[in-house]
Design a protein around this nucleic acid. Structure first.
Lengths: 343, 343
DNA sequence: TTGAAAGCGCTAACAA
DNA sequence: TTGTTAGCGCTTTCAA
């Protein structure tokens, strides 16, 4: 069976305490003992039983990430990159990453509770915030360390990283308006998502500065997927007067919208401009390439993890409330780079 | 602090043994005791300490998934869907999912070793097999339960699910050849990946049946990303005589290849056919939509997890070596649905 | 039907 | 510098 500290103790003729301390690197152990113990440990192929270690230390060295998924299946390039960012940063500090998926709702909070009370994690990374976010309320109340990607309504007394969605969409609106687009539509995420709120506001304000009104009738709510973006765009394009630009609130929906426009025989970037938000790898390789706002997902994930790790360690994170400025990536789907603007 | 079994014992006046058994549902506990204990447990908000439970039971109720990533960052829709499949199926049986990312190599096996010896997981799901797969060798030798997505060279004495890559690419080759394509190129994954081998073989054989030779000079090896597919296609299309069809071995590379063709002013499906493999959601919404081979990733992941769970439980899985037949999804990138074939 | 006691593998006060 | 001892929170013989 597995090698334990006790085996090393027997083999070296020392006590398990001494072995434990030698392995942990305490300096109240004779150097030669330390060497001996370590050598035997290697010989025997010893690996500490983390379960036992954690039970004793009352820490789990694990961080939790519960992905809010709408359907049972999901395929979001955003999350895979985010995951890598969290996982790699965590691993660098010897932390494990416990991942699960759970649709928003009652069960979701139970999943958090369960992991907290079952002492499976030391803290959480929370993603895709809702305006009223029960996860944040719960974690705050329970005193569990956590760091959040996104903000929420109410008091911002928790550590977070967020992109400046208002600014981002203002930049986009400005760009679109300068190109001459006047009849602008929007494919927005469900209103309960915090970033829906912010991005929509940014778009509205940005257009307003150019005297352009974002009409309510030109807003379609969709579920962040290509399929959803496709349906939303179809609905927009089935109207008598179609928009001359569609600003989608994420890339996946924008890509779906492009597909819808093309299925109707429209040339994207010429008959209709379409823009996204996120700059996923696909944005660069779509046809035409997608004008969008870049977010450094991997870095955001790593930063959040670093914050969380600091909090778990009882330290104050160097930075605990970060708002990043997304930058505009102009490609061809808005018609600017290749063709002259549509008046 | 956290509520323990001891608190319940004190509150009910019973011993911790009795409480433990009442909670576990043993039937050598008086019904009224059972009721009382459970009621108090709920009142106090008791949740078992999984660490303690697991240490005692010598099981972790956790399965491990180490994603082989090439760069530090990765964004693969394939993995996010796979992850959801594993996570959901695992959760349904009360299992946790421990995820990490690790580029193939020395460190990778250490990561496996570490999790096994540290008793962090009861078994692994292994993805994206290599022809000589050190992970499989290790797990087999160590006697750790595991289930694999993909096959490997050598003895297939382990449980796996795989798609029939040979058949898949034969179908594709057949389709392409029937459409009249004769100068077919291929964007292949690194040769050490098992599926590269199989898919390439399928393409070669399928074309051969129509008397078409897949020339070595028409094969480009790439890294499974859009960017890689883009570069590979650029190289293919920079030749004096360009291929009339490019079969990429996955969708991401196919999408990158489409982008490359389009950047050179070629019309995909007309000037050049491009096909993929996987049928990721994006395949349906690209422009033109991508002809590809469908794989039910989510179901594969769930099936694999089920197998693994059975093995961990000491049972024999109902099915332990599954080879699925991918089916051809004909869209427009090969020029068949919309335009007449190119002679 | 219940409880005392041992122990899962480890750490850490405390004493020697 | 080392060892004894007492847990971390739980399950499970074994005896009552």
């Amino acid at each position: 069976m597995a090698v334990t500290i006790r085996d090393i103790a027997e083999r070296t003729g020392k006590s398990i305490t001494t072995v434990s301390r030698a392995l942990a690197g305490y300096d109240d152990v004779a150097p030669e003992t330390k060497v001996l113990v370590r050598q035997v440990a290697v010989e025997l192929g010893y690996e500490p039983n983390l379960l036992a270690q954690r039970l004793q230390k009352q820490r789990t060295d694990t961080i939790g990430l519960i992905l809010p998924t709408f359907g049972p299946r999901f395929s979001d390039p955003f999350f895979s990159e985010f995951l890598a960012g969290v996982g790699n940063r965590a691993a660098r500090s010897g932390f494990d990453l416990l991942v699960s998926t759970q649709p928003p709702g009652e069960e979701e909070i139970n999943a958090y509770r369960h992991k907290v009370q079952g002492r499976q994690v030391d803290g959480f990374i929370v993603v895709r915030t809702r305006r009223q976010d029960a996860r944040i309320d719960y974690l705050r109340r329970a005193g569990v360390p956590f760091a959040v990607f996104g903000r929420a309504d109410g008091t911002l007394d928790f550590p977070f990283v967020d992109e400046d969605g208002v600014l981002g969409m203002r930049l986009m609106a400005d760009h679109l308006a300068r190109l001459g687009y006047r009849r602008v539509a929007c494919i927005a995420p469900p209103a309960e998502l915090m970033f829906a709120q912010l991005r929509l506001q940014g778009l509205r304000e940005g257009l307003a500065e150019h005297g352009v009104l974002l009409e309510e009738s030109q807003i379609r709510v969709s579920d962040l997927t290509q399929r959803g973006g496709y349906a939303a765009a179809q609905s927009l394009l089935a109207e008598a007067r179609i928009p001359d630009a569609i600003a989608a609130c994420n890339d996946l929906m924008a890509l779906g919208a492009m597909s819808a426009a093309q299925s109707r025989g429209l040339v994207v970037g010429q008959d209709v401009a379409i823009t996204g938000f996120d700059d996923i790898p696909m944005a660069e390789h779509s046809h035409p390439p997608l004008t969008t706002l870049h977010q450094p997902i991997y870095e955001i994930a790593a930063t959040l993890t670093e914050m969380l790790l600091a909090i778990i360690a009882g330290k104050t994170p160097e930075q605990s409330q970060v708002i990043l400025k997304p930058h505009l990536v102009i490609r061809r789907s808005c018609g600017s780079a290749a063709q002259p603007a549509q008046p």
